[in-house]
Amino acid sequence: MSIMPHDYAAILKAIIDGYTLPLTGYHGLHHWARVWDNGLRVASENGADEEVVRLFALFHDARRVNEHIDPDHGLRGGDLAHTLRGSLVHLDDSRFDLLYEACRLHTDGHTTGDATMLACWDADRLDLGRVGIRPRADRLCTDAARALVPWAQLRAEGDHRVEEVLQCWGW
């Protein structure tokens, strides 16, 4: 459980204030919203911590410096979450560690580990269709994600806007 509720609109504002890429780019706002939605669908099946999954969606690409190869962007996203810890990010140490590690490692190709990190990684991988890649079953972590591939692929390819998530963020 969170120590206190998260103000997602304030978190998003803090992210956007330092975001240097186009908000509508491959790694921007609509991607984060689909990752949020994907992650909650996976979490409902694998028992992941939904609050960590939500925060991962916001932070995992929050400090990319380009739309292509950017090996340290997950680490920078985790570091941003760390700078907001106590003011906007309210997780106890063990849950914050899950968020930080999920962000840091999300592009490393891991497929085993903690259920929450697996849900985070699958949530991001399920949105690969936005860049013309269909997620491979052997590179997904959970059966829940494997079952979602056709649905998620259509949404990613069509740059689907998840209105309920955007509204939750005050967007």
Rank of each mutant, 00 (worst) to 15 (best):
I3K: 10
I3Q: 09
P5G: 09
I11V: 15
K13R: 13
I16R: 11
D17S: 14
Y19T: 14
Y19D: 14
P22L: 01
L23F: 08
Y26R: 07
Y26S: 09
H27W: 04
W32A: 15
L40M: 12
V42I: 14
A43H: 04
N46T: 15
G47C: 11
G47N: 12
V52F: 11
V53Q: 03
R54A: 12
D61V: 06
A62H: 05
N66W: 04
I69P: 01
I69Y: 11
P71H: 07
D72G: 10
G78W: 06
G78K: 08
G78E: 07
D79C: 04
A81S: 11
L84K: 08
R85E: 08
R85G: 00
S87L: 07
S87R: 05
S87N: 10
L88D: 01
V89C: 10
H90K: 01
R95I: 05
D97Q: 10
Y100E: 05
Y100P: 01
C103V: 07
L105Q: 13
H106T: 11
D108G: 01
T112L: 02
G113I: 04
G113D: 02
D114M: 00
M117L: 15
A119S: 13
L128M: 10
R134I: 15
R136A: 15
A137T: 10
C141K: 10
A147P: 01
L148Y: 07
A152P: 02
R155V: 02
R155N: 12
D159A: 09
H160W: 15
E163I: 09
E164D: 13
Q167R: 13
W169N: 08
